[in-house]
Design a binder for these strands. Structure first.
Lengths: 150, 150
DNA sequence: ATTGAAATTACCGTTGA
DNA sequence: TCAACGGTAATTTCAAT
């Protein structure tokens, strides 16, 4: 739990550039490369770091349409809904949240007709509210300056 | 735009493991390592790949509370709101969307009082609707099986 | 295939409990 | 005194060309 300042720095640096080498990280946190390697290894072991990935510009990748979909799932259909969601390729993120919109989805599609087809699949299990994403002014992996937060 | 099947495969593989080497990628797509390196280089140049990062378990990192906040921003305060959002450390993602909730935020905080303080900062510029995140059954970088989408 | 860099290992020293 | 952590150096692996 209590990650120290250096581990936070490492997480922040890696979230901004997951390909930094241990030597580069070492310079940035004023430690030796093996010391950094050991810290990162432990962060992975603890499950704090769960993996490494690329950041993709979906628009440039040929996915021009992304949307958030608030889903007011019918009380008896929650389990079924969750199972469905996990099978739908277009779903990028799915949050189970408090409040009337039990699930919030982020989806990416190639066309409006694809989006329409997707909503059709959901409508049997929930009322949906679709919000088209126009821009994303902030996109991070985690909060900033976490060390400063009490 | 028209990324071919192999480039999609590369993107998918890298989104699942951003540390795969060119040699490993080469085996998985049945090409030579230099050919893969060239493709990845071009994807970066085109801006399809915008970076590399780590995936972090916020809970294990000591950020136990995450929430989505729908923000109904007052008509005259949109610019001010956007400026504020970009300065708030706790904001992880911010989407500008269609519909009454002009902005949807994903935030991460260490305590409920921190969340309360954050909402206080927003309330002058917008009506907010907070949804606490209980779980995230799907977390991807992009849609699956994109090649199959027409 | 060769060169160079990065990861890993082993070993030692320091510190603090 | 012992456990935890970091540094240095040598070795081995591996990636880029």
């Amino acid at each position: 739990m209590g990650l120290d300042k250096i581990n936070w720095k490492l997480l922040t640096l890696l979230s901004q550039n997951g390909r930094l080498t241990y030597a580069e990280l070492a310079k940035l946190v004023h430690l030796s490369a093996p010391a950094v390697a050991e810290r990162v290894r432990k962060l992975e072991e603890l499950g704090v770091i769960t993996g490494y990935g690329v950041q993709v510009n979906l628009e440039k990748a040929g996915i021009p349409i992304t949307a958030l979909i608030g889903c007011q799932v019918y009380r008896t259909k929650e389990r079924e809904f969750k199972a469905l969601i996990m099978e739908v390729d277009e779903v990028i993120e799915c949050y189970n949240v408090t409040g009337p919109y039990a699930f919030m989805l982020k989806v990416g599609v190639k066309s409006m007709s694809k989006l329409d087809a997707l909503l059709e699949r959901l409508i049997d299990l929930s009322d949906t509210n679709t919000m088209m994403i126009m821009s994303q002014p902030v996109d991070r992996t985690m909060p900033l300056n976490i060390a400063q937060q009490d």
